[in-house]
Nucleic acid binder design. Structure first.
Lengths: 303, 303
DNA sequence: GACGCCTCCAAGTTGGGCTTATGCTCGACC
DNA sequence: GGTCGAGCATAAGCCCAACTTGGAGGCGTC
């Protein structure tokens, strides 16, 4: 088994023409070179060098090995450089999965900053809702998954957090849920409204987890909401509310990018928070490009 | 510094998907694989593997390294195979240098046998007289030099042997010097002649070393030969003798390939021997192709 | 809930590699 | 021709690195 270290030494010997000169070039002592060459000749089973007293020459096998050595060592240095480029953020790929309202607001800024700070890196983005996005993360289809979670409504419901206990969870920001009512609604101009004031309204809910959380919040307020529609799409929610088909709650973050046509937003009480987090695998968190992207997401969340 | 051994292990891990399976494939224990991968990740400074509990996956850097690994390991195995071919006599080059009378008789048979026994090897032949051929051997311009030497005439004259004490000297055969006289010479029909019977004849000598040896032999017989001509070329010697321009001595080996036109050969006394040897460098003697060629030369000399 | 497979961790041992020190040979220079 | 310097080989010693064994923890499966 030929070792790359031996090839380096052999090449140095071939170019310098002596063990001592090679040792000086390699920064070690002459016996080290002598022993390495003896070991290499033993592992190949044939003489590689001719000691003529005056000069050190190569046998035919030695010449063949030196001829191969250049390619092998070039491949090794190329590999090292590529790895170093990835480690040094001059290259690298980050595949980001985000839920829709996150990708519309928080992600673009972070992506732009990442591209500006590390032009060599390539960041891709696809959208998926949390259950699927975490699955993609575990399957190796992405490096970072943006997800959100709601705090426990009644003390102990760790259903959301329990799935992530083997992941790196990086909190990004916490936004508030805002009530959405039709423009002509009796509460449209209120300063704020209690959630129980919407007890008899038809509801428009969001994704399954949002819907589940809405039910929990309403039940802890003493009623069960009547949910007529459910859609992930925030413009659709506004459309439905604006058409007078019901009321809704919506993350404050979504308001930044969706025009509330025909609907009015009103803070609701009790205040309900949604925590947006970035998820990744422990090993991936140590990958420079992934760590950098997480930092950029956190920075973007600060604003 | 990435080591080839690490690449082998990484590749095994990547193909099998687990440390244990890689260990079984590589014939070592699982902690060994685990430690090697840790060392590789430390040397590259970036994570290469993702431990997800269920399966072992590669990071982007890991994939890059595996991609390079195939080329590097292929280069290493190609180098090993070329070396093995040279060591196994399926390849290899032997450059032979011979003096003229050797190359005409002893060498052709040995070359043919070498080619038949080891078709992959390439043997080349150039002609040079001993002082120059040994120089070529030392300069690395050939692997084997055919030379000859005369035994000491008066006890101690190690001038020929002393130059070879750092070489491997392989005796091939010993031939006799034969007297050559014109056809009409008074001694042309003799059973044998004493060298002193030629005291008053003009002489035709050979190469410088042959000439020096002739002088020594004659002087130990009590006279100094009158040397009129000197030539390496055995047909020329015969021509000169046949023309009645003098007498000569000539290696018996040369008679096999030169027609003695116009001259007669007669054994001389005292019998003078010439030893033909193959010379090589100690390191080269251990090169399989060189050793095989030396064997073939020795075999050819037996006949 | 138990079993099996896989991984990591710790400790011990073994082997290899490097260094220092020494001897030897060869070529150069005086 | 003798001495000096350079270079290679060898031996002894030290140290690190790698492998092994044994054990613990996790996860999926039966």
């Amino acid at each position: 088994m030929i070792e790359a270290r031996h090839l380096r030494v052999l090449r140095a010997v071939a170019t310098t023409g002596s063990f001592s000169a090679a040792a000086r070039e390699l920064g070690c002592t002459q016996p080290a070179v002598s022993q390495q060459m003896k070991a290499l000749e033993q592992s190949t089973g044939t003489p590689l060098l001719i000691r003529t007293g005056r000069e050190m020459r190569l046998t035919e096998a030695g010449e063949a090995l030196v001829r191969h050595a250049s390619g092998i060592l070039a491949g090794l240095t190329a590999a090292e450089e590529e790895i170093a480029a990835i480690a040094g953020l001059r290259a690298g790929r980050v595949r980001l999965v985000s839920f829709p309202s996150g990708s519309s607001t928080l992600v673009p800024g972070a992506l732009a900053e990442m591209r500006a700070a590390h032009p060599g890196t390539r960041v891709s983005l696809v959208e998926a809702e949390p259950p699927r996005s975490v699955e993609m993360l575990r399957e190796g289809e992405c490096e970072i998954a943006l997800a959100f979670r709601y705090p426990d409504v009644r003390g102990a419901d760790p259903s959301a957090g329990a799935e992530w206990d083997d992941l790196v969870v990086r909190p990004l920001l916490t936004d508030r849920l805002i009530g959405v009512v039709p423009e002509g609604h009796r509460l449209a101009g209120a300063e704020r409204i209690g959630i129980s004031e919407l007890e008899r309204e038809p509801w428009i809910a969001g994704c399954p987890r949002c819907r589940r959380h809405l039910v929990e919040v309403c039940e802890s307020a003493g009623f069960t909401p009547r949910i007529d529609f459910a859609t992930d799409d925030y413009p659709a929610v506004f459309g439905l509310v604006g058409a007078g088909l019901g009321v809704a709650v919506m993350p404050e973050l979504a308001l930044e990018s969706v025009r509330p046509k025909g609907a009015r937003t009103v803070p609701v009480e009790p205040v309900v928070h949604r925590e947006i987090v970035a998820l990744t695998l422990p090993d991936l968190a140590r990958v420079p490009a992934v760590g950098a992207m997480l930092d950029k997401l956190a920075e973007a969340a600060q604003r």
